[in-house]
């Protein structure tokens, strides 16, 4: 399998040599980081170029990079100062709707697609960052792969990424009349509203959520390289 990654990177480097697309090769596959302006054109090239021939788009999803690398538990430098290791953090599941954080960061939202070529039997991950200028807008790939339709609807529903040129960009997974984009990292895990049957009104009503946000295991980051040796061994072999 590592052989195909090398070949594929070489072809990609040839085809995209005069563009801003960045190729990265890792243990787990090849990734192409595409500027959002050329997202649709790059997709078309990837599908139609003979040596690439990605006939299938298997998956497309949004990613929210807010809180990336933020831990909830201190792992070093505390033994001398005391026992408290908890860090006040706003990781998923720790806050409610009124406590949600509102901050912006560059390159917060990304769109990631998994491509598959049946002809050459290789896979590629393509990624672009959605520009955050009031509205997250990324060109739709619907003209390249028809099957992307629902995947883009899902990314719109869960992350609020708008796909320009999509013919039917409606919510898909959430409830009719849902407010917010639930997979964003600043959307509380407990949600915003709950439903119950109201005896007096004789119908189902919405009301603010009554459960408390709670996390059992804090998010802990350790970079003690426990697996580095074994990883290098595998790379070498």
């Amino acid at each position: 399998m590592s052989n195909y990654r090398y070949e594929l990177s070489k072809h990609l480097a040839e085809v995209f040599s005069d563009t801003d697309a960045q190729i990265s090769e890792s243990r787990s596959g090849v990734e192409l980081l595409v500027p959002v302006e050329t997202w649709a054109d790059t997709a078309k090239t990837l599908r139609d170029h003979k040596k690439l021939a990605f006939e299938q788009l298997m998956d497309l999803c949004g990613v929210d990079f807010l809180t990336y690398g933020e831990a909830e538990w201190q792992t070093d430098g505390v033994s001398s100062t005391g026992f408290s290791r908890g860090i006040h953090s706003k990781g998923p599941g720790r806050f409610s709707w009124d406590e949600r954080r509102e901050e912006s960061m560059p390159n917060r939202f990304a769109v990631v697609a998994q491509l598959l070529s049946l002809k050459h039997n290789h896979r590629l991950t393509i990624k672009c960052f959605a520009p955050d200028e009031g509205m997250l807008a990324v060109p739709s790939l619907i003209d390249v792969w028809e099957g992307v339709n629902w995947f883009e609807r899902e990314a719109f529903d869960l992350y609020g990424i708008v796909f320009k040129g999509h013919p039917d960009l409606r919510r898909i997974l959430t409830d009719y009349g849902f407010i917010g984009h639930p997979f964003r990292k600043d959307f509380p895990l407990v949600g915003n509203v709950e439903v119950k049957y109201d005896e007096e009104q004789k119908r189902v009503v919405y009301q603010p959520v009554s459960i408390e946000p709670r996390v059992l295991v804090p998010k802990t980051i350790r970079r003690d390289s426990r697996y580095v040796d074994t990883m290098n061994d595998q790379e070498a072999s």
Partner: peptide, 13 residues
């Protein structure tokens, strides 16, 4: 209690 930590990276399997 804590589980194991997984090295940073992305994978599609």
């Amino acid at each position: 209690t804590e589980g194991y930590t997984v090295p940073a990276g992305e994978v599609y399997s």
